[in-house]
Amino acid sequence: MNLFRLFGDLSHLASIFILLQKIQSTRSCRGISFKTQALYATVFITRYLDLFYEWVSLYNFTMKVFFIASSCYILYLMKYKYRPTHDPSIDTFRVEYLLGPCVVLALLFHYKFSIPELLWSFSIFLEAVAILPQLFMLQRTGEAETITTHYLAALGAYRALYIPNWIYRYFTEDMVDPIAVTAGLVQTALYLDFFYVYFTKVLQGQKFELPA
C-alpha cells in the first residue's frame, strides 16, 4: 500500500458517498446514468468474486464488500425507490457496444485462461469505459447539478491517483500489471474533457455548462 493508492481508494469511497448524498438530498437520481451504475455493479461483481476464496487483507476484503453492496444499493435506489425521477429517454448509450468489445478484449488479453481470470480482465476493461453512458448523458443535456460534478470529479481523481501508484510500485516493488495500467490510462483519459470544465467552471463557483 502506498499513499497514492490509499488516497485513490478513499477518493473512490468519497465518490460513492457523494452520489448517495446527491440522491438522498435531492430525492432524485436525475442526471445520473442508470446504465453507468449498472456497469459498475457488473464490474465489481465480476472482479471481486475472489472475495470468497482469496484473502488479501482486511482492508481489501472490506472495500470489496463495500463496493459490491453500495453499487447494488444504488441500483435499487434508481430502479425502485426513485424510479420516477429517472428518465431513460436521455440515458441512451448503447451498452452492448461496450460489453461486446470488453468480452473480446478479455479473451485476447488475460493472465491465465480460467474463469476468474477472464472475468477479472473483463472487469478491468469494462471499468475503463463504464463511465461513457454517464459522460454521454452529460454531453446530451449540456449541464449538470454541482453535486453530480463532484461525484464525477472524485471518481476521476481515484483513477488519476492510480497512475502515480503504478509508477511508484514499478520502482519500489518492480511490479507492473500491463492490463490494469493500459485500461487505467484509457479510463483516466476519458475524464480529461470533464476535468477541464470542472476546474475552469465548477471550482470557480459557476454552474457546469457545456458550450452550445
Binding site: R5, R47, V56, N60, K64, F67, Y162, D177
Partner: peptide, 10 residues
C-alpha cells in the same frame, strides 16, 4: 515481474 501480477489492487 510481468508474469501474472497479484490482484491486490481494487
Amino acid at each position: 515481474p510481468l508474469a501474472h501480477p497479484e490482484h491486490d489492487e481494487l
